[in-house]
Design a protein around this nucleic acid. Structure first.
Length: 607
RNA sequence: GCUGAUGUAGCUCAGCUGGCUAGAGCACUUGAUUCGUAAUCAAGAGGUCGCGGGUUCGAGUCCCGCCAUCAGCUCCA
């Protein structure tokens, strides 16, 4: 067996020191990093592959100027400027050149020079100047392979021979430094591994993800559609999708009622002054759809808070009523930029499973703890793992700093007391308060932001909300906004990809499909379907004039969990031949047993 | 919104460098078949080639604008 080669070192603090640096400055107490797929090794390999790509681009497009080329979660990229347009077809060409360069086994060398000297050296390269502006070090390092040199902090592999298992995945545009107002550079993304096998597996995973794409499955399974003429980002729910959605809505409705939430409903549009009072007009106005009615400006709601607030204000409230929980499947409209729309994951009209809890400041912690229990229950039912993150005060915000601090502390305590782990997103809060975001991890280990719990001290102030406290005096309640799924649209998109379209029977659009073998068996199938419909179980009967084999195939392709075949034998003995997709088994059951089984399977889930 | 790519029947796609009435498979309709677990046979219907301009004797094919989609940037449920 070939001994693994060392491509870099790791020092005590965990920092990666490449072999070039180690040679120049030494490295005490360093552990070697071998040429394999460890996270550290991949970082070095991918970073060097980015450089190799830059070298190839420079040879193919001599006028190219380079900005930055970092390693990211999904591989690496390099941002650069060329005069020509680079399309997907050019990737192959660049890849080929990279292979060619890698084969030359060029050593990668490093040398450092004072910043001033570097500035002179790259005087005619405005992008390099831009990079240097961001670096505070006095000495800058340059890596060289063959005739290609690039300003870089490293680390890099010692030789280009280590860079063989890579693939350029896509071309895209990216703003210089992520700033929308600056010029747009060309960005090429790529991925690299130590061995061929891992690269192949990675590409296979991407293929798998493509097969699960909710947009593809959504149209194959007849869940939803979009219509170019009707407008971008405006989903239409087809019968199968609407069934699926209705089941989730019903399940969740009951779960809310059980937890003391009251259903309410506000109007879709409100006068613009309302949005001015709330602060939405100023802070969220660019995303709102505005219209004029009888000379008055109105805004279509982008959030449901105002409706719930006005309902709260309609009555006097005693401290005895708190916490008061209003919930609504609220339809909201947000003018998202056209480029960000993405299937059901990002749309312009969507329905939130929204609730607002009015409580005293002292109750925040216990209310949040209750919501966390609710979230946990729902996530478990659908088989999702999740993580949480607290977001703190953003730059564009309303409300006093002290108020923000109090609220943020309450959120942290609620999580701490329950032993939940969480991350912190500094400055990531909504403009009206800090929040806990719930991020789902799906079957392919991808993370999605769905649920959210947001404390709000500001809107109660702006709308002068009150309750009568135990001393018969007026006090100001706190509001907690929360959503568990986030929106039905996004949640169903994630659910579809998570289950690859094979929804569990309790939410499947078609829970049972009857396939009568010949036309004289249809009556019995209808009778059984009728019984199941009594229990809100969605069943279809496929009595089309097609072969049995074909109809079974169609049912399988539609991923129906239970297929019930009805023929002479079944009619005669009042049985059902069941084909269970989940356990991939076939068995016979008496009609009564069958109905009981389906009833159990569909109702065992309670949130 | 920005960068790049794409847009032919409900879906997946073919249609060479501009040239007769635009094709295929699946789905759909009709007829035959009445069938025991992943595609029965036959026939039929379905498209102002995303929309609007332009170049040309002639445009699905070339040019411009718009719309939509895709991959990203940025933003978010």
């Amino acid at each position: 067996m070939e001994e693994k080669e060392i491509i870099a070192y790791k020092d005590k603090s965990g920092q990666i020191i490449d072999t070039q640096t180690a040679e120049q400055t030494g490295c005490n107490d360093c552990e070697p990093i071998y040429f394999d797929n460890s996270p550290e090794a991949l970082e070095v390999i991918r970073h060097s592959t980015a450089h190799l790509m830059a070298q190839a681009i420079k040879q193919l497009y001599p006028e190219a100027k380079f900005f930055v080329g970092p390693v990211v979660d999904e591989g690496f990229y390099y941002d650069f400027r060329v005069d020509e347009k680079i399309g997907d077809s050019d990737l192959k060409k660049i890849e080929k050149k990279m292979q060619e360069l890698a084969k030359k086994k060029q050593p990668i060398e490093r040398y450092c020079i004072p910043k001033e000297e570097a500035k002179k050296k790259f005087a005619d390269d405005d992008l390099k100047q831009e990079v240097m502006k961001r670096i505070t070090d006095d000495e800058l390092c340059i890596y060289r392979q063959g005739d290609f040199e690039d300003l870089c902090r490293g680390p890099h592999v010692p030789n280009t021979k280590f860079l063989r298992n890579f693939k350029l995945t896509r071309v895209a545009g990216a703003y210089l430094g992520g700033d929308e107002n600056k010029e747009m550079l060309t960005r090429i993304y790529g991925i690299a591994f130590a061995d061929k096998e891992s690269l192949k597996n990675y590409l296979k995973m991407i293929e798998e993800a493509k097969k699960r794409d909710h947009r593809k499955l959504g149209s194959e399974l007849g869940l939803f559609m979009f219509d170019d003429e009707a407008g971008a980002g405006l989903p239409f729910w087809l019968p199968k999708g609407a069934r699926l959605r209705a089941k989730i809505e019903q399940l969740l409705w009951k779960a809310h009622r059980k937890r003391g939430y009251e259903p309410v409903r506000g109007p879709e549009i409100l006068k613009a002054d309302m949005w001015r009072t709330s602060g939405h007009y100023a802070c969220y106005g660019e995303n709102m759809y505005l219209t004029e009615i009888d000379g008055q400006e109105y805004g279509i709601k982008p959030m449901n808070c105002i409706g719930h607030i006005l309902i709260y204000k309609h009555d006097m409230h005693s401290y005895r009523e708190l916490p008061l929980k209003y919930f609504e499947y609220g339809v909201v409209h947000r003018h998202e930029k056209s480029g960000v729309l993405h299937g059901l994951l990002r749309v312009r009209e969507f329905t939130q499973d929204d609730a607002h809890i009015f409580c005293t400041p002292e109750q925040i912690k216990s209310v949040v703890i209750d919501v966390l229990e609710f979230v946990d229950r729902v996530m478990k039912i659908f088989g999702f793992e999740y993580e949480m993150e607290i977001s703190t005060r953003p730059e564009k915000a309303i409300g006093e700093k002290e108020i923000w601090d109090t609220a943020t502390t309450a959120l942290k305590e609620a999580l701490d007391e329950n032993g939940f782990e969480y991350g912190i997103d500094e400055g990531g809060g909504a403009f009206y308060g800090p929040k806990i975001d719930i991020k789902i991890t799906d079957a392919l280990k991808r993370k999605w932001q769905c649920g959210t719990i947001q404390v709000d001290f500001n809107l109660p102030e702006r709308f002068e909300l009150e309750y009568v406290d135990e001393n018969n005096e007026r006090s100001r309640p706190v509001m907690i906004h929360r959503a568990i799924l986030g929106s039905f649209e996004r949640f169903i998109a994630i659910l579809t990809e998570h289950f690859a379209g094979e929804f569990p029977i309790f939410i499947a659009p078609t829970q049972v499909i009857f396939v009568p073998i010949a036309s004289e068996h249809t009556a019995y199938a209808k009778e059984l379907a009728g019984s199941l419909m009594e229990y809100d179980i969605d069943c279809d009967i496929d009595d089309r004039n097609e072969s049995l084999a074909k109809r079974v195939r169609m049912a399988e392709k539609q991923k129906v969990p239970m297929i019930a075949i009805i023929g002479d034998e079944e009619v005669k003995s009042r049985k059902v031949a069941v084909r269970d997709r989940r356990v991939r088994k076939q068995y016979d059951l008496d009609a009564e047993e069958f109905i009981k089984l389906i009833k159990e399977k569909t109702s065992e889930v309670r949130i």
